[in-house]
């Protein structure tokens, strides 16, 4: 990582020394260059390249910000420190003439750097804020400074362990689990831990806290590729829940330049539209916004399989949606005692 950052520095340095306005080549991230790759089953960047050129009055500011961010990343990597998107944004605020107007702009430049280097930002130690967690029988060995060689089992803490830089960079040593259960919400995750679902189903539990962060998706991918653990995703039966599952399965347009985040073989097991009817779940009517979103999803290439089209159609037909918590109608443990076993069996 350190090497590619130095290389970038050398490139710019040499251009200036040759009395040339420095510029770099990178893949375009504009929407018309984001394509769906049916083989990889995820979004990828197309062949179009753009040139970010410091001779261009509109480019020079983002160009400067990119170089600064590269330098900042190199500092993180060489000093073995980690940072967050937000911290990076505020560090830039301390630099005159580099500062961003908002964090969105800073995040965008970090993504540019990912594209330019063809590496994920986690590789140069910039992480999103932690909110996602993991729990279950997995022993890991830390590699972060001060913890090198230390091991922990992810059942050690009953609230689960935050998926942050330390977990992301750790080595996975061993696990007895034979599946991964991904849940959209912290409350349901806690319910499953309390009901010892990890033992009952012999599973690792991961909660995504809404749309899953990239580091979480990377871990899911690792568990699937390195340990062949099947992935089961459990979300609300509404367009938002469906899409949380889909991003884990097929990736997002925002990360089209990165590989190893999508897990195409992951399974969405519920709550299905048909479950609403079969289990007579308490529901809420779809809002106008839900409606609009469902139609957007129907047109999305990631949803083109018949299975997904049918699921979207059911929601549109019944005009209702249901949350994970709806199973509480049958008692707090119903979901662990009845629903999940049935689902995992099928």
């Amino acid at each position: 990582m350190e090497k590619s950052l130095t290389q970038l520095g050398n490139l710019i340095y040499e251009q200036i020394n040759n009395q040339e306005f420095p510029w770099i080549h990178m893949q375009s991230r504009s929407t018309d260059n984001i394509l769906y790759d049916t083989n990889l089953r995820q979004y990828v960047l197309g062949p179009r390249m753009i040139r970010r050129h410091s001779r261009n009055i509109r480019h020079i500011r983002p160009f400067t910000q990119l170089i600064w961010t590269a330098w900042f990343a190199k500092e993180l990597v060489t000093q073995k420190k980690t940072s967050t998107l937000r911290e990076t944004y505020y560090s830039a605020r301390g630099q005159r003439d580099i500062e961003y107007t908002d964090q969105q702009e800073s995040d965008n430049i970090i993504t540019d750097l990912e594209v330019a280097l063809n590496r994920a930002r986690e590789d140069f130690n910039i992480f999103p804020a932690e909110r996602s967690a993991i729990f279950g029988d997995l022993t890991i060995e830390y590699t972060v400074p001060g913890y090198e060689g230390r091991r922990t089992n992810l059942t050690d803490h009953p609230d689960g362990i935050m998926i942050g830089p330390a977990i992301t960079s750790s080595e996975f040593i061993e696990t007895s689990a034979d599946k991964v259960l991904v849940i959209e919400k912290g409350a349901m995750f806690n319910r499953l831990v309390e009901e010892k679902a990890h033992e009952k189903f012999n599973a690792l539990l991961i909660q995504t806290a809404g749309q899953s962060p990239r580091s979480t998706r990377a871990i899911i991918n690792r568990l699937y590729t390195d340990y062949n653990l099947p992935i089961y995703i459990f979300t609300d039966a509404d367009p938002w829940g469906l899409h949380i599952a889909m991003v884990i399965i097929s990736g997002s347009a925002n990360a089209a330049h990165l590989r190893g985040l999508a897990t195409p073989d992951a399974k969405w097991i519920g709550v299905l539209g048909s479950d609403i009817l079969n289990y007579k779940l308490p529901t809420e009517p779809l809002t106008e916004y839900d409606h609009k979103r469902l139609f957007e999803l129907k047109a999305d290439p990631r949803y083109k399989d018949q299975f997904w089209q049918d699921e979207l159609d059911i929601l549109l037909k019944i005009e209702q949606k249901a949350e994970l918590e709806a199973f509480s109608k049958y008692g707090l443990t119903y979901i662990v005692d009845e629903y999940l076993p049935a689902k995992l069996e099928s």
Partner: peptide, 28 residues
């Protein structure tokens, strides 16, 4: 003014990134 403002920064940080001195931007 924009060039006067940003070119020195590009030079400074590319130099640091390459672990070299700051390249000369006067010609630019």
């Amino acid at each position: 003014n924009i060039f006067n403002k940003f070119l020195p920064k590009i030079a400074e940080f590319s130099g640091r990134l390459a672990e070299k001195d700051t390249p000369n931007i006067e010609p630019l």
